[in-house]
């Protein structure tokens, strides 16, 4: 009943307010070697807009790559060494915008906004002058120069498929055994419950491995999405996520009494949050705080971020250890809870 009446309310709120492709207060980095009157006032204008928030000021071009890899910023604005001089002497200057295009939609929006702000500034300082100042922008899309959507959805699809296959199928098959009464027979037998559970999970672990392989092969050879990082790491992280999904499936199966319930819980509690809150469809950064907090407990969010980092940005374990640790924690937590539930049911 709650679901029937609550669902539309929740969805309208989520879709209406939270899940926007609009970008607000994006963290950016500034490299301004000229540090003159013109550049300072342009930076002030950028900062004044509600789209951007200057997260850090860097001092050399070498710092650009590392901060993008850390994933703290989505856009870097680079001024030339002689911004004001260029403007005064040649009436034109150039600003470089570097965006993290591992999420092409966000990158596109950000560079457009930034360009608009800069044009605005240009119009303002040109007012009342004969010769117009022109500030041209040069854009660089990091990681995904062609702004291919596949870069975005391949990691998302991987998260979704693994979750669907592992969580839903594991939950459903175990609940099916409960419904049929075969589970009880097995529990009365000398087979250890733990072994029954492992036996139920192994086929889906294998299936998922096949799925991971086929998705990766397709994305590399058909969609031209490169695997820039270590394949081994990617496979390891995927297995970790698979195990988390399996644990979730077991947890659901220990609670649900019918296949429909199991399916419903899997869909509502896992599939929807995965689609909406993992960052795959809508950037998490722009969501209001409550939703951002909720998104932290969605395992897919962390996996999605790992896959993007490893596959698209090509960075190693040192950059994704936090996400890995969180997933490991979730695995232990869900598995522990599932086993505890399972035992309670027997007692």
């Amino acid at each position: 009943m709650f679901i029937l009446l609550g669902m539309p309310v929740v969805q309208i709120i989520i879709f209406g307010f939270a899940l926007t492709n609009e970008v607000k207060n994006s963290k950016i980095a500034i490299l301004d070697p000229s540090n003159d009157a013109a550049s300072t006032s342009l930076i002030a204008q950028i900062e004044a807009s509600r789209y951007f928030e200057v997260d850090q000021v860097i001092h050399s071009a070498d710092e650009i790559e590392p901060i993008f890899k850390k994933g703290r910023i989505k856009l870097a604005v680079i001024f030339p060494a002689s911004f004001n001089e260029d403007l005064q002497h040649f009436n034109k200057a150039q600003v470089q915008l570097i965006a993290d295009a591992s999420d092409p939609n966000v990158a596109n929006t950000l560079t457009n906004y930034a360009t608009a702000v800069i044009m605005d500034y240009q119009d303002r300082i040109t007012q009342g002058r004969k010769l117009p100042y022109t500030i041209s922008t040069e854009m660089r899309m990091l990681y995904n120069p062609e702004l291919k959507g596949a870069y975005n959805f391949v990691p998302g699809v991987m998260a979704m498929v693994l979750l669907l296959v592992c969580t839903m199928m594991t939950a459903i098959t175990i609940v099916r055994e409960k419904e049929m009464g075969t589970m009880e027979i097995m529990l009365v037998s000398p087979m250890k419950p733990f072994r029954i559970v492992i036996a139920k999970a192994v086929p889906y672990l294998l299936l998922s491995s096949v799925n991971i392989t086929s998705i990766l092969l397709l994305s590399v050879f058909v969609l031209d999405v490169p695997i820039n990082g270590s394949l081994l790491l990617l496979v390891f992280e995927s297995l970790l996520f698979t195990l988390v999904s399996l644990a979730l499936g077991l947890l659901i199966s220990s609670r649900a009494e019918s296949q429909q319930t199991a399916m419903f819980i899997s869909l509502v509690a896992l599939f929807l949050p995965t689609v909406m809150l993992s960052g795959f469809m809508f950037p998490v950064e722009n969501m209001p705080l409550p939703l951002r907090t909720v998104s932290n407990i969605v395992p897919a969010k962390w996996y999605y971020s790992i896959v993007k980092s490893v596959m698209i940005k090509g960075i190693g374990l040192h950059a994704v250890w936090k996400e890995t640790l969180i997933l490991t924690g979730m695995l232990i937590f869900f598995l522990g809870l599932a086993i505890k539930n399972f035992k309670i049911r027997l007692a």
Partner: peptide, 18 residues
């Protein structure tokens, strides 16, 4: 566990794999 080795069980639900 030893008990389980020595008993058989048939539940009210029909419980073979169809």
């Amino acid at each position: 566990e030893k008990i389980k080795q020595n008993i058989g069980y048939m539940s009210q639900k029909f419980s073979l794999y169809e």
